[in-house]
Amino acid sequence: MYTLNIDTQAFIKQHWQQKPLVIKQAFIDFEDPIAADELAGLACEEEISSRVVVTKGDDWDVVQGPFEDYDQFGEDNWQLLVQAVNHWYPDSQALVEAFRFLPDWRFDDLMASFATPGGGVGPHIDNYDVFIIQGDGERRWKVGDKGQHKRRGDNPNSPLVDDFEPIIDVVLQKGDVLYIPPGYPHCGETLSLALSYSIGFRAPSQQELLTELADSLIDSNQGHKRFNSVDEPATPGMISQSHQQGIMDLLTQLAQDPASYQTMLGKLLSQNRFELDICEGEEPLTADELLEAIEQGAIIQRIGGLKVLQLENDNEQRLFINGEVYTFANVTNDMLQLLANQVRITPEEASVFTANAAALDILTGLLNQGLFYLAEDDCE
């Protein structure tokens, strides 16, 4: 178990999405959730997103995985980064759990890195919130203030920026955490062989929202209302300000109508950027077999990275799971909350489903789709 040594509500009020923060010994007696050789092994897999960043003076080369070996990179000045480790390495889920004081819809992934002395990715700006957790070894981090920072090589699409004046300059040691909100330039330098972890939280952009909303309206055959007016401009070639605003108000009306956007939001926010480790069994499970497994003490476990979300004030009994809608007939809100909030459902908790045939069928279907799996209680 990992327990953050901070007042989470005070953090949200004073720092979240506002300003960076160094939390020394945020985790007391921190233990790395994954070893360096295990991380290197994950980066050998085709379906797992990984890369090596090689430091070359004031420049950086990026080599995309998978990797067969690492001898080519030498003994210093490189860093291995593996995305979505929580999808593929169940033991890392406990570290993710420590940050669930923030909503699941924001959570992106747990990235793990192994770095040699001098390794880093260069000064850059992220468009998401990130918590950097130091494991074995030491890394020096510099964080600059928000502002107009020149992009490296004058490339407006590059995340890299020119050097900046730091407002934070700190050496992170095992168990330390550095929080960086979007827009703050930062740069890490490895001082000794090091393992570190980045937990990212994202929100959709306006582009993403409009794209998803348009697709949703087409799929549901909604959004046919057109602009009409009671006044016209004096000249035929003019689009008046009132017409401009009236046309754009059509979008505002959609944004104020839950029936127009809720399904789209639920599907969008429950999707993952990275591939999931789907856990389908060899033979489909029946509802009776699930009942028997629960009676024998099986845990119903969510696969790593899976998002199970519920909309507040939803007028339907449904959940959004991995970009899909799951409607539950004749279930209580407690059942929906249990699935949305619990990564592990104990036999005692699962008993609320066993008395509801429809809910049990849906739960059986989720297991057969490989989104959940049956596990033993490792606390016994």
Rank of each mutant, 00 (worst) to 15 (best):
A359F: 07
Y70H: 08
Y70V: 03
Q256Y: 06
E376K: 11
A350L: 08
I168V: 15
G365Y: 10
Q262C: 06
L367W: 06
L254I: 07
K24H: 11
Q253E: 13
F131K: 02
E289F: 05
R302Y: 08
Q342N: 14
L268F: 04
E45K: 14
L290S: 03
D29C: 04
V230D: 10
L265R: 01
R273M: 13
F114K: 07
P181W: 03
N341Y: 09
D231R: 12
V63P: 04
E97D: 15
Y326E: 12
F164R: 01
K150P: 02
K146A: 11
D162K: 06
Q25N: 14
L195A: 00
E289N: 09
F372M: 11
V85W: 01
E348A: 14
S113L: 12
D163A: 13
P33W: 10
H15Q: 09
D257N: 15
G200A: 15
L306N: 01
C187G: 05
Y70P: 01
P66L: 08
S196F: 05
Q317W: 02
E324P: 03
Q17R: 13
L193T: 13
L366I: 03
Y261P: 01
A357E: 15
I294K: 05
G305M: 02
V62A: 09
L291T: 14
E208S: 08
P156Q: 06
R106Q: 11
Y89S: 07
S198P: 00
M264A: 05
P204I: 05
A40E: 11
K150H: 12
A255P: 01
N330R: 12
F11A: 00
L42H: 01
R151H: 15
M248L: 15
F131N: 00
D231C: 10
T354S: 12
G246R: 00
K142C: 09
C279H: 15
G323D: 08
G74H: 03
V352W: 02
V331M: 04
D109L: 07
K19W: 03
L95I: 03
F201Q: 00
Q222D: 15
R318S: 11
S242Y: 10
F320K: 01
V308N: 00
Q72E: 14
P123V: 09
V62Q: 11
N333R: 13
V170R: 02
I218V: 15
D69G: 10
T332Q: 13
Q25E: 12
L251N: 06
P166E: 04
P103N: 04
E324N: 15
F11M: 02
F73H: 07
S260T: 05
L309E: 06
F27I: 02
D61M: 07
E349P: 00
E283C: 10
G305H: 05
S50P: 07
G153R: 07
E212L: 02
D378H: 11
L254T: 05
G304Y: 03
L110P: 03
Y197V: 02
T252M: 08
G120Y: 08
A40H: 08
W78K: 06
V143M: 01
E165H: 10
D126W: 06
M1F: 12
G175V: 02
I299G: 00
F107T: 06
I6H: 00
L21G: 00
E283Y: 12
D231G: 07
V230A: 11
L291G: 15
L254V: 10
L254H: 10
E45P: 04
L209A: 03
G188S: 04
F227D: 05
V22I: 10
P103R: 02
D58M: 10
